[in-house]
Simulated assay, not measured.
Amino acid sequence: MQKLNLPLSKVRTEEKEGKTYIFDPIRKKMLLLTPEEWVRQQFLQMLLGMGFSKNLVGIESGLTVNKRIKRSDLLFYERGGTPFLLVECKSPTVKLSNETFQQVAQYNSKIKAPFICITNGLQHYFCSINFEKGSYEFLKKIPLPCYINKKK
């Protein structure tokens, strides 16, 4: 798989019938290794390594947007179940653009996480969302949920 602009995490892979599969530690199953799945698993491992809880994340959770079923890539929660960070992962060959940002913003209009992120494994953009003002602000650092800050 392509080298990413992320710390390389050790992940379990298997070859079956000429295809490569990667183990998803959250869903506890092997998944076909696509470029997007590679980004999702490496980004997930990075966040888990920072202290994000694997018990407080949903992967490919379903939601309805404009009467269509969509799936969010990664959704991290605070303790108590409040959405915290919505992450949209793309293949490294996908250029991050206003269109990809609009996709995660549209998903977040339903989810209402205070932070969103888009990544293709090479570039990563984090934003803080102000729902009252209908605005957003790009962040220089990854936002951390309260349960991580309380440990320090």
Rank of each mutant, 00 (worst) to 15 (best):
K90H: 14
E137P: 00
M46W: 14
Y147M: 08
L32D: 11
G121L: 12
K54H: 11
F138A: 03
Y125P: 01
K141D: 15
P25I: 12
V65N: 00
L122F: 02
A113E: 01
K67F: 09
N130W: 02
K28C: 06
R68C: 02
P145Y: 02
G51K: 13
E88P: 10
G121D: 06
F76Y: 08
V39F: 08
E36Y: 07
E137V: 07
N108E: 09
L48S: 11
G58P: 00
T119C: 00
I148S: 12
L8I: 07
P35R: 02
P7K: 13
G58W: 01
R40K: 11
F84Y: 13
T64L: 13
Q41V: 07
L122S: 02
P83D: 05
S61K: 02
P7W: 10
I59C: 05
E60S: 14
G49A: 15
E132M: 06
N108Y: 09
K133I: 06
Q41K: 09
E60R: 13
Y147V: 08
M1H: 00
A113H: 05
I116S: 10
N66Q: 13
G121I: 12
P145A: 02
E60P: 06
Y125F: 15
E14G: 06
K67G: 03
S128Y: 12
C117Q: 06
Q41C: 02
M50G: 04
V39G: 05
L44G: 10
N5R: 11
L96G: 10
K110C: 04
R71I: 08
L48N: 06
P83Y: 05
K67E: 14
E14V: 14
Q42R: 01
R27S: 07
F126K: 06
P114S: 11
Q42Y: 00
E15R: 12
Y107D: 11
E37A: 01
N130R: 03
L75T: 02
K67Y: 09
G49F: 12
T119G: 00
N130Q: 02
N55S: 14
P25N: 04
P25D: 00
S109G: 12
G49T: 12
I116T: 15
K150A: 10
P25R: 03
M30Q: 12
T13D: 05
G121M: 11
R27T: 07
S91Y: 04
L44Y: 09
R68M: 13
G81D: 02
T93E: 15
P25S: 05
K95Y: 00
K3H: 08
F76K: 04
L6S: 07
P7T: 14
Q45W: 01
F101A: 14
